[in-house]
Design a protein around this nucleic acid. Structure first.
Ligand SMILES: [Zn+2]
Length: 575
DNA sequence: CTTGCCGGGTA
DNA sequence: TACCCGGCAAG
């Protein structure tokens, strides 16, 4: 699927992982510190970038029943850890007594390993099923057990597999992303281009060169980006409104625009995606994600504000979602993880001067690419710097944010914890909800919201892309993220469905190639989803949008819009 | 192969 | 301007 999502400029801290203790058992905990030996060229990336030398400190969960907690001071390399972005259980050697989790009768239960037959990839476990007394032993495949407890509600714990079965009709590839919604990452890629060079290809190549363990990295990305994405939306745990709803009501517009370089999307729960999150990756559910109350907070009914023109919009939400999903299928799936800044900006000006723009765009790109000044930054010295900012809202005046900044996430987290949370948090990593990271370009301070239009979109900034490349991974199955992103897509679309009641039945909002802009429709604030690479052409990918030809068929050509008849760009279904 | 549609015609 | 279509890019 697409794109990957990016991510990660955010630190990995807080990620739930398992690390081996002295006794050979794996213990769960969260990464409490990351120590990357700073490289001379980019010292500021220390702790953010991940290298083979990176060491992770793990703060272990308190172990019940008197077992001893492993030494927290241990540092582990990524190879030692099991969890998102690290190894998986399938690669671990489990010793007798290892606590694992598995899904049994649709519920997640604890189990204890009695034997791990590595050569068979099987583990014998002993479980104590609830509702029955005593224990029983059974044999599970190694990939059916998890070291990390799932956060899914027990009721749903197994639903994903069912989905997977339903959806999975075949290829491995599909399997990998069967729970995800693909995100159209290059919209309208049909643009003609003079040269064969292509940004996405380039970035991919660049990434691949940089990565020695794409597989692992990708999973990390996958998971963490999801978390990050959620955090960027930053629903404070207390907030009763679902994330996407808040967004529609502008609670985050200002925030978002200030961090527009990150992906801002809805929750993965929308449209049922979270429920179908994969269980194939045993660690999947272990990461720090916002303490959304499982499926409840995200369910689509009853949360939609009713003063709106359409209380019925929300139900349609999911429908449309699925419709979109199906229409998309996996057609857009692409390993091109690094291309991120897909500007999903609903075009309000329906008649945009699209054709002209295309050409211009192409020329522009070429210019950027070839320009010695702008394009050469790949080996440039100047690096953007990341700062972390507290977004805590003033209790009294919700529009005022704390704004405390720091050089590291930890610093700000500390601030949040102390200053705003009174030292106690109700969820692990709760601080993260109040922290956003921002990129500071050395030369110029971050543009203010009111000047966004004067700034070159980050996604067009080679330097920025490079950053993304560093941060993102070429993941192939960034299901979580993709789903998330797409969710936002849906949200935006719904926003516009509300905003413009005239929408045709099959009309769909089409992402515009322009990224990094915030639209403010009355009552609604929509935010650009920045996904790395911008689609350069408005041309739709086949299947993404129905055109007259597709809708009416050749046999009803008379029903086509004139443009279609002329073999010109369709006007009816292209916005 | 099909689609979407640009560019360049002709009436 | 309305209309047509060759041909290309992408899938
Ligand atoms: Zn049409």
């Amino acid at each position: 699927m697409s794109t990957g999502k990016r991510l990660a400029k955010r630190s990995i801290i807080g990620t739930r992982v398992c690390a081996p203790g002295d006794d050979g058992k794996y213990y769960c905990g969260v990464i409490s510190a990351v120590n990357t030996p700073a490289s001379p060229q980019q010292p500021e990336l220390a702790g953010l970038s991940i290298t083979p030398n990176t060491r992770y400190s793990v703060r272990f969960d308190p172990v019940p029943q008197g077992s001893k907690t492993p030494d927290s001071k241990n540092e582990y390399s990524d190879r030692d850890l099991i969890g998102p972005g690290f190894g998986s259980v399938t690669g671990a050697r489990l010793v007798a007594g290892q606590r694992v989790y598995l899904t049994y009768n649709g519920r997640e239960i604890q189990a204890e390993v009695t034997q791990h037959r590595e050569h068979l990839d099987e583990v014998d476990v002993r479980i104590a099923p609830s509702g029955q007394e005593g224990t029983m032993s059974l044999t599970k495949r190694i990939d059916e057990v998890r070291l990390l407890e799932s956060r899914k509600s027990a009721r749903l714990a197994d639903s994903d597999t069912d989905f997977a079965r339903l959806a999975d009709m075949g290829s491995d590839r599909k399997r990998a992303s069967s729970h995800s919604i693909d995100v159209p990452q290059v919209i309208g890629s049909r643009k003609r281009r003079p040269s064969s060079s292509n940004d996405s290809e380039r970035s991919n190549g660049a990434w691949n060169e940089r990565t020695n363990q794409p597989g692992q990295r990708e999973s990390y990305m996958d998971e963490c980006s999801a978390a990050m994405v959620l955090m960027s939306l930053s629903t404070p745990p207390k907030n009763p409104l679902p994330i996407h709803c808040q967004q529609l009501y502008g609670s985050w517009d200002d925030q978002v625009s200030s961090v527009s370089n990150r992906v801002v999307v809805g929750s993965p729960g929308i449209g049922g995606t979270s429920n179908s999150s994969s269980s194939s990756a045993s660690w999947r559910s272990g990461t720090p994600s916002p303490p959304l109350s499982d499926e409840g907070a995200l369910s689509s009914t009853g949360l939609w504000p009713s003063n709106n023109s359409s209380t019925t919009v929300h139900p349609a939400h999911n429908q449309r979602y699925y419709q979109y999903h199906h229409a998309q299928g996996s057609s857009s799936s692409s390993p091109n993880f690094t291309t991120y800044d897909e500007g999903i900006v609903p075009d309000l000006d329906l008649e945009r001067p699209r054709k002209k723009k295309i050409r211009c765009k192409v020329e522009n790109d070429d210019y950027i690419r070839s320009s010695p000044n702008t394009g050469s930054s790949s080996d440039n010295e100047v690096k953007p710097m990341t700062i972390y900012k507290c977004t805590w809202r003033d209790e009294g005046n919700r529009s005022v944010r704390c704004g405390e900044v720091g050089n590291t996430w930890e610093v700000v987290a500390e601030h949040v914890l102390r200053t705003h949370l009174n030292g106690k948090k109700t969820h692990e990593n709760e601080e993260d909800f109040y922290i956003v990271d921002e990129q500071l370009e050395p030369a110029c301070s971050p543009p203010t919201k009111s000047h966004w239009d004067m700034v070159r979109p980050r996604s067009e900034d080679p330097e920025y892309q490079k950053q993304l490349r560093l941060a993102a991974s070429p993941a192939q199955n960034n299901s979580q993220i993709a789903a998330t992103v797409n969710t936002q897509d849906i949200i935006i679309r719904d926003v516009f469905a509300m905003a413009s009641p005239q929408s045709t039945p099959s009309k769909q909002f089409k992402p515009s190639p322009r990224p990094l802009q915030a639209y403010n429709a009355p009552n609604i604030s929509v935010v650009t989803v920045s996904l790395g690479k911008m689609p350069h052409s408005p041309r739709r990918v086949r299947g993404e949008t129905k055109k007259c030809r597709k809708v009416y068929g050749m046999e009803h050509k008379d029903l086509w819009c004139t443009q279609c008849k002329w073999k010109k760009a369709c006007t009816r279904f292209s916005d």
